[in-house]
Design a protein around this nucleic acid. Structure first.
Lengths: 123, 123
DNA sequence: AAACATAGTATACAAAATGAAACCATAGAT
DNA sequence: ATCTATGGTTTCATTTTGTATACTATGTTT
């Protein structure tokens, strides 16, 4: 590891109960409306969905596009800059998958495994 | 479960106010005693240091070596398996450094930049 | 005998993150 | 006039995470 450590900086973007799954949805589907995200993540509350999206927007990972309509329409997508997180997410996902197996060897337990970024760059 | 990625699995290892800095110390110094970790991370409480080390040990990232002496001596180090996290930490660190600059461009240099060691005491 | 050193536990408390549910604004459809 | 749809906000409760401080054990040193 290097002298100046910014692991926590990257961590800030990803930490929270919902941010990884929100990012996963947006990476997978490209552009999504607020209501589509709600449907895709049934257990999240509007409050959490809003706050997490706002944080991701602040960090320039997610773009928020407002259409002036009634009823409202707001679309979210991964920014081009946010796409730059792909290697980080991929590394974490790969490691995570291997780690699940490693823990299975150590403590014995079976689980499913899947890739994080499947249908990414479309947006 | 089918839409659940393993980013969160990797995240589990790293999440917490103190885990990144503990890992940074152990990656940097190799083997360290409990008291050395305390000295290196002055603001951490024994309880947190113990609990975070125990979690890292459970995940086979950190090894705990107990010497049967009085007063006690316990040494911590990164396991060989834990070394496998290096690419993940490196990717996160690289991205984090670039991201700090990116945010500076967006919001200006006067923004406070988070250093590796916790600044909790400034709160 | 009392203090010291180390690596912790135990208990109580505070702060932060998350959850549940109600409320808001507004155009068009019924 | 009321209902529906959407994308929120607001308030308060609960759960999770982190902090503060005292206590334990025990061989060695003073």
């Amino acid at each position: 590891m290097s002298d100046r450590c910014r692991v926590e900086t990257a961590l800030e973007i990803l930490v929270g109960k919902w941010k990884p799954v929100i990012l996963f949805q947006l990476f997978s589907h490209g552009t999504m409306r607020f209501s589509e995200l709600q449907k895709a993540i049934p257990d999240i509350t509007k409050k959490m969905l809003t706050s997490q999206l706002r944080e991701l927007e602040y960090h320039d990972i997610v773009h928020r596009e407002i259409y002036q309509q009634i009823p409202p329409k707001v679309e979210y997508s991964i920014t081009e800059y946010g796409m730059g997180m792909t290697p980080v997410l991929q590394a974490m996902n790969d490691w995570g998958m291997a780690h699940v197996e490693h823990l299975n060897e150590l403590y014995g337990e079976e689980r499913e495994v899947e890739s994080f970024v499947s249908k990414a760059e479309e947006g």
